[in-house]
Design a binder for these strands. Structure first.
Length: 709
DNA sequence: GAGCACTGC
């Protein structure tokens, strides 16, 4: 600890802090910024007037760094040094240094907008540009004006981004603290590879034959490529002449591996011996996604092979559709990957692309999450802060999202009553913001409370929050098994996936949360326990914010509602009003109604059932649109026509221009736009002209069908 | 009839 580079900069940092409310620190890997900055401020008495907060984008980081700091200060974790993450608050009245996830700090500012308990706020790993950090950056800019006399803000960033952050904070000073990395030699390819799978295979084998010992970390884009490369690499290594090289093992590392397997990769070869006979000098090849870029650190890596690509999820605000695309990494990512080779000794990084690609094609920094996600939740959050000087469309973002994306968020919020036609937050919206959920689910919970099916809705919301971690990753071994397993699971009564999720939890509940039941049905125990936690947290918040009596514990008197789940589905229909789709006339394709109309299909994994004529329900709401091989609706729920009508009416009245004028006092607003011609109003920027006529057509068909009956 | 990188309240 004594020779951490950052400690030599202590005086300089303190001096700069004294004269400036905000300082940007560029601290390279190994500089000690995450553990030392907070201690420096503690030593210098900043903790006498308030707490020093350090945010982290990940839970594990908040926990492990705070543990380290407590140890270094020789105090018990939870006393002078503590942490706060979702479901776990290990702080006390004694706490002076507090590590917390950026999401927790955002929640805290909901009840205490000026964050008065803190004297110093450090936004660590800001260069990762998580959605929450970006919102915090904007809020800090405002906060330092309000609390000019008693708040200091520190932002840690990457070399390529520091100037930009500084400019954002009126050219605040930038301090660079060197890291403690060993030099890494960068080796570029002469040309672009035809296939980066083949190219990484060749490079890996070259390293194995020519280079001295040291593990090899290979960055690939996804599970498929990883599995292919692992098996090719294993074949190639086996075919090498016996005794000509040292032994080698090949290990995959990605997010859908069970956590135990991820951990076993991180341990040093000594521990691998538990599973296999101890090879004297054995090289490990770790084939990983970008999980190894920041989230996990693999020890012993000397060589890195960088494909130059990453799989990224992006949101298209005009269609409401997500897609997973393989895209080029940024320079910051490329450097981060290379750095993984220099943690224990000098290393080498093989970039499978020419240097001009790095220099001319790669973006300096990764496109921030805020420009790749649906912003309904963030916009609702900002609206709920009710800050007089904040206009969402002009909110000071470091990288502003497109106006199309903001308008999409406003439109969604309007359709679920979270904001009114003038863009102001409603009382429903205020209560929604208290819930740590996507707005559509928050809205569903509030509506369900009105219909007496809150308990069911809580379960659905909790199940959806954990959904990806419920099913184990697909691997050849479990695939066949899983074909039989779901037979034992409920089928959602044919009404859709939300209902099935509800039934699954209810079954588990009836077994008294038996872990064996999860295993028998191929559900991850950890995931189901998480659902239980989330459900509990949500019901506690609902008890605080909902009016009237609540039924959060499950009410078994509602037997009749279990046949068709009408109340729950009705609540879902109101909550998911902006994600509604109508089936085509004579086949089972659907057309989305809230966005620029898209032809989509129900995902094949859905349990939604067709009627006797083989047709699916006329209307469904969907949890997510995802474009993979084709555009699919994932997690759908059958809804009834008469529930849909009010939504169509609301869609018709939609006027995005009015929604976006949120900061103008309402009198002025109605003055200027008093002409009430809804047909004209629909034709605004970002909304296609044909939408109105399509909705009209949808209504006509609906009325015609109704007349027939 | 498909398959998904990574986080977080």
């Amino acid at each position: 600890m004594a020779n951490l580079p950052i400690l030599q900069f202590e005086e300089k940092i303190l001096e700069t802090m004294e004269q400036n409310p905000v300082v940007v620190i560029i601290g390279e890997t190994g500089s000690g910024k995450s553990t030392q900055l907070s201690q420096i401020f503690h030593r210098k008495g900043f903790t006498n007037s308030g707490i020093v907060a350090v945010t982290q984008p990940r839970r594990v980081a908040a926990v492990s760094v705070s543990r380290r700091v407590a140890q270094e200060l020789g105090v018990r974790l939870g006393e002078e040094v503590g942490y706060a993450i979702r479901f776990e608050d290990r702080t006390s009245e004694k706490t002076r240094i507090k590590y917390l996830t950026d999401g927790v700090l955002l929640r805290e500012s909901l009840s205490n907008p000026e964050l008065n308990q803190y004297s110093v706020i450090i936004l660590d790993e800001a260069h990762e540009r998580s959605l929450n950090t970006d919102i915090l950056l904007g809020m800090m800019k405002r906060l330092i004006k309000l609390r000019a006399s008693n708040l200091k803000v520190l932002i840690t960033s990457a070399t390529l981004d520091g100037e930009k952050v500084s400019k954002f904070f009126s050219n605040c000073p930038v301090l660079t603290v060197p890291g403690k990395l060993f030099p890494v030699e960068i080796i570029y390819s002469k040309e672009r590879p035809k296939s980066y799978l083949e190219s990484s295979l060749k490079t890996a084998i070259d390293i194995h034959i020519r280079e001295p010992e040291g593990d090899v970390l290979i960055f690939m884009t996804g599970q498929d490529d990883i599995e292919k490369l692992v098996s090719k690499l294993e074949d190639k290594i086996q075919s090498l002449e016996e005794g000509s090289c040292m032994d080698a093992i090949v290990l995959p590392l990605h997010g859908s591996l069970p956590p135990e397997m991820q951990e076993s990769v991180l341990l040093h070869p000594l521990s691998v011996r538990v599973f296999s006979p101890p090879p004297p000098n054995c090289r490990r090849f770790i084939v990983a996604t970008n999980i190894a870029e920041t989230s996990l650190t693999v020890d012993g890596v000397v060589y890195v092979i960088d494909s130059g690509y990453v799989k990224q999820r992006q949101y298209n605000p005009s269609t409401g559709m997500y897609s997973l695309d393989v895209v080029q990494i940024s320079k910051v990512q490329a450097n981060q990957r290379a750095g993984r080779a220099g943690r224990t000794c000098p290393g080498k990084c093989y970039r499978l692309y020419p240097s001009f690609v790095y220099n001319e094609e790669f973006l300096d920094v990764t496109v921030p999450e805020i420009q790749r996600s649906s912003l309904a939740g963030s916009v609702l959050y900002l609206k709920s802060l009710d800050l007089p000087d904040i206009d969402i469309l002009k909110f000071d973002f470091l990288d502003p999202p497109s106006s199309e994306s903001l308008e999409d968020a406003l439109k969604q919020l309007y359709l679920i009553d979270a904001i009114n036609e003038n863009g102001s937050i409603t009382s429903v919206g205020k209560r929604m913001a208290e819930l740590p959920l996507e707005p559509l689910l928050s809205r569903t919970l509030l509506e369900a409370n009105e219909y007496g099916c809150l308990s069911q809705a809580l379960t659905v919301a909790a199940m959806l929050s954990a959904e990806t971690s419920l099913l184990p990753g697909r691997s050849k071994g479990t695939d066949k098994k899983r074909k039989h397993a779901p037979v034992d699971l409920p089928d959602g009564a044919g009404l859709g996936d939300h209902i099935q999720l509800l039934q699954i939890f209810e079954y588990w509940d009836q077994t008294n949360y038996n872990p064996q039941w999860c295993k028998d049905n191929d559900l991850q125990v950890r995931g189901m326990m998480f659902v239980k936690d989330v459900r509990k947290q949500l019901s506690q918040i609902m008890q605080k914010i909902a009016k009237g009596s609540l039924d959060v514990d499950g009410d078994h008197r509602w037997k009749e509602s279990r046949v068709d789940y009408k109340n729950l589905r009705k609540a879902l229909c109101v909550g998911y009003a902006s994600q509604l789709a109508e089936r085509m006339i004579r086949h089972n394709g659907y057309r989305t109604l809230g966005f620029k109309p898209q032809l989509v299909q129900v995902h094949p994994s859905s349990v939604l059932r067709a009627d006797d004529e083989g047709l699916l329900p006329h209307y469904v709401v969907y949890h997510e649109l995802i474009a993979t091989s084709r555009p699919f609706m994932r997690n759908v729920c059958a809804v009834e026509m008469r529930w849909v009508m009010p939504i169509l009416t609301r869609l018709e009245k939609l006027n995005v221009n009015k929604l976006s004028s949120g900061s103008v006092p309402s009198e002025e607003r109605t003055e200027g736009k008093s002409v009430d011609v809804p047909n004209e109003d629909v034709k605004v920027a970002g909304v296609p002209d044909d939408r109105e006529s399509r909705i009209q057509a949808a209504r006509d068909r609906f009325l015609a069908r109704k007349a027939k009956k």
